[in-house]
Design a protein around this nucleic acid. Structure first.
Length: 349
DNA sequence: AACCCGGGGCA
DNA sequence: TGCCCAGGGTT
């Protein structure tokens, strides 16, 4: 039996029931695909349900504010996805009269939609014969065909892309695309895949050559950066001083507290650090350490310290985006996960 | 081509 | 601790 038919047969008897598979509505598929970028199905599922309930159509999505979108996105990471979705939803209202595109050539022009997502939406919504190429497909093809070209190299992307497209099942591209991704996610898993139960084990190159743990090959050039972020809690009655992150950095357009980043761990015994704080909050300011947390991201290790300030003067030079809000209002603003954890630990216990 | 962008699950 | 997840944008 052909590779494609084996994959499809496996899928028909092993697939999960996922809500976004029950529709051909390009808007709903778009919602699911963006949420699932670099995100596990189990992690994205509740977000998908909340977004679809809050914004049933692209018209509703386009009418939202960025803060509303980011608040709903809070905790999911890669926040540019949410910002790009709002941009794209509004563009669809203007350029496509509110009708979500279903052709690959239209989709690929939209912000936040790359080759994978354009192939996924076009095949699932209109049956266009564009092969998806995500982490699952890279792994399945690399192992089954024994290809050791690094999947994150330019040459590797081209090679796998051409192979994937040559394999597309023309009778039902959508079914095949769903099937090969599900096969990668459940059967041909990254670690310790269940080869003895695999219908493709006899013809799998990696299985036959003991290369399962070697393929796919990936170049890793991940440089993990260490940072020290020091947050200052300034309270005034029921209000708290918050800061909107406007720079090209993590958590862009989310809200946190005024902060000073240092190259080394800050301490109240460090004169240089104290002087910086006094420059921003006045010479009479008092600094009380509250909590230290180590926050791990894929590409950054962030040592976070929280300090309570008293007798401060706010000249707003620390950040033009700083403003006072009530605790209740702050709760409605999108914020990095580390702040939510701090607030829960420190104030609600 | 290299770098940047989150958070969580798992061995 | 390292790797991976229904990737994409910017420089």
């Amino acid at each position: 039996m052909a590779f494609q038919q084996e994959i499809i047969n496996w899928y028909l008897s092993n697939k999960r029931s996922l809500p976004w598979r029950d529709t051909q509505d390009a808007y709903i598929i778009w919602l699911s695909e963006i949420i699932l970028q670099q995100t596990r199905v189990e992690q994205g599922m509740p977000y998908f349900n909340r977004f679809l309930e809050a914004y049933p159509t692209v018209l509703d999505f386009a009418a939202a504010t960025e803060t509303e979108i980011l608040k709903l996105w809070q905790g999911l990471g890669y926040y540019s996805r949410g910002r790009n979705m709002l941009f794209t939803a509004r563009q669809i209202m203007e350029l496509h009269d509110g009708v979500f595109p279903v052709r690959y050539s239209d989709l690929i022009r939209l912000k936040g939609i790359g080759e994978y997502t354009a192939a996924a939406i076009s095949s699932f919504s209109s049956g266009e014969a564009k092969a998806v190429l995500d982490g699952n497909v890279f792994r399945v093809l690399s192992r089954y065909f024994g290809i050791d070209t690094p999947i994150n190299s330019t040459g590797g992307k081209k090679q796998f892309s051409e192979l994937a497209q040559s394999l597309i099942h023309l009778e039902d591209p959508a079914l095949y695309n769903q099937a090969i991704m599900e096969f990668g996610a459940l059967q041909c898993k990254p670690k310790s895949p269940d080869c003895p139960s695999c219908p493709l084990q006899v013809s799998c190159y990696a299985k036959n050559n003991n290369l399962i743990s070697v393929l796919p090959v990936k170049l890793r050039k991940l440089t993990v950066k260490t940072r020290h972020i020091n947050y200052f809690i300034c309270r005034d009655g029921d209000n708290i001083l918050v800061n909107k992150r406007i720079y090209q950095d993590i958590w862009q357009h989310l809200f946190d507290f005024p902060n000073i980043e240092t190259t080394e761990a800050a301490s109240v015994n460090d004169e240089q650090f104290i002087n910086k704080v006094k420059q921003n909050f006045g010479k009479n300011v008092t600094i009380l350490p509250l909590m230290e947390v180590k926050h791990l991201l894929t590409h950054q290790i962030i040592y976070v310290q929280f300090f309570a300030l008293n007798n401060y003067i706010i000249n707003f030079n620390i950040n033009a985006e700083a403003k006072w809000v009530s605790w209740a209002d702050f709760d409605q603003l999108p914020q990095p996960t580390i702040l939510t954890k701090f607030i829960n630990n420190y104030f609600n216990e």
